[in-house]
């Protein structure tokens, strides 16, 4: 695991990727700090983080696109498979390297509140609370990027799919608001989600029977539930989307609340996607 971690980290800083990411992150942190804190006479660094959370739309694909897709393309994955190390430690090593690449520019950003405190009263608790949450949000999104990289064959495909996924996540609660709050439209929206999930399942497992079963059972259950209690569906879709939206969870930190449930949520999402990545890599060995 340490060997993979070191190699990956080296790879990021030997190529332009690590520096590019640091530059992008610091430029935007600088611009927003200038606008909100310095020009706006406001000592709340968390507002800067809130304004620049969109940066992950670019940052995540930059970091995660090459990590596993490139191994597949250059056939170096065969080396990883033949070495006496488990796929879990390979994936965790890679994930930790990605986290460090994100952590390095954020460590520089952690100096900003200290600098600001020279000119006024800064609430360090809320500033650093938000900074930690910002990092965990990034870690959670990176795990999704890692997973996408493991199921794609090329860097470009991985980057595009990751970007689209990040866009959807970013605008998820906003888009969900456009679905009318009537029960029937909630039902339809949820039905489409179940179908999408079944398609993804088919893409992953190539098992038509299981995917069809999931689609039929899922939609059947929705229909039954709708028959039994249609008022419960009113506004349900938007509610669900809001509660699973990773970006929205970050807002409470900006408001000065250190939301433990959000921390647990980010950690769980990261864990699930790292696990799924290991499974995807293991699966490739069986059905190449």
């Amino acid at each position: 695991m340490i060997a993979v971690f070191k190699r990956e980290l080296n790879g990021y800083y030997k190529s332009v990727t690590g520096y590019l990411l640091a530059a992008v992150l610091l430029i935007f942190a600088g611009i927003y700090c200038m606008v909100y804190n310095l020009s706006g006479y406001c000592a709340n660094f968390e507002y800067v983080l809130d304004a620049m959370s969109f940066i992950f739309l670019i940052a995540v694909p930059i970091i995660s696109m090459r990590t596993l897709a490139e191994e597949k393309k250059s056939k170096t994955d065969q080396l990883l498979y033949s070495l006496p190390i488990s796929m879990t430690s390979v994936v965790i090593g890679k994930y930790l390297a990605m986290l460090v690449v994100l952590a390095v520019p954020m460590a520089i950003m952690a100096l900003y509140p200290v600098i600001l405190s020279q000119f006024g009263a800064v609430s360090f608790a809320t500033a650093y609370g938000a900074l930690i949450a910002f990092f965990l949000l990034g870690g959670c999104l990176l795990s999704i990027g890692l997973f996408i990289s493991s199921i794609t064959e090329s860097q470009v495909a991985a980057a595009v799919i990751t970007l689209v996924t990040m866009l959807l996540l970013y605008f998820m609660s906003g888009l969900a608001g456009y679905v009318s709050s009537e029960s029937s439209s909630s039902l339809i929206a949820l039905g489409i989600l179940v179908l999408l999930f079944a398609v993804l399942l088919y893409y992953m497992s190539k098992n038509m029977l299981v995917s069809l079963a999931v689609a039929i059972v899922g939609i059947g259950a929705l229909m039954l539930w709708y028959q039994a209690d249609s008022p419960a569906f009113s506004g349900l879709f938007a509610e669900i989307m809001n509660s699973i939206s990773v970006f929205d969870r970050f807002d409470s930190f900006v408001d000065g609340v250190f939301d433990l449930t959000a921390i647990v949520y980010y950690a769980s999402i990261s864990g699930v996607f790292v696990f799924l990545t290991v499974q995807a890599m293991e699966k490739r060995r069986w059905s190449e």
């Binding site: 190699r7 080296n10 790879g11 030997k14 190529s15 250059s74 056939k75 170096t76 994955d77 065969q78 080396l79 033949s82």
Partner: peptide
């Protein structure tokens, strides 16, 4: 020790 058909080398090393 295994050498696959295409040597699994990292080009940036």
């Amino acid at each position: 020790g295994y050498l696959p058909e295409q040597p699994p080398l990292y080009m940036d090393m």
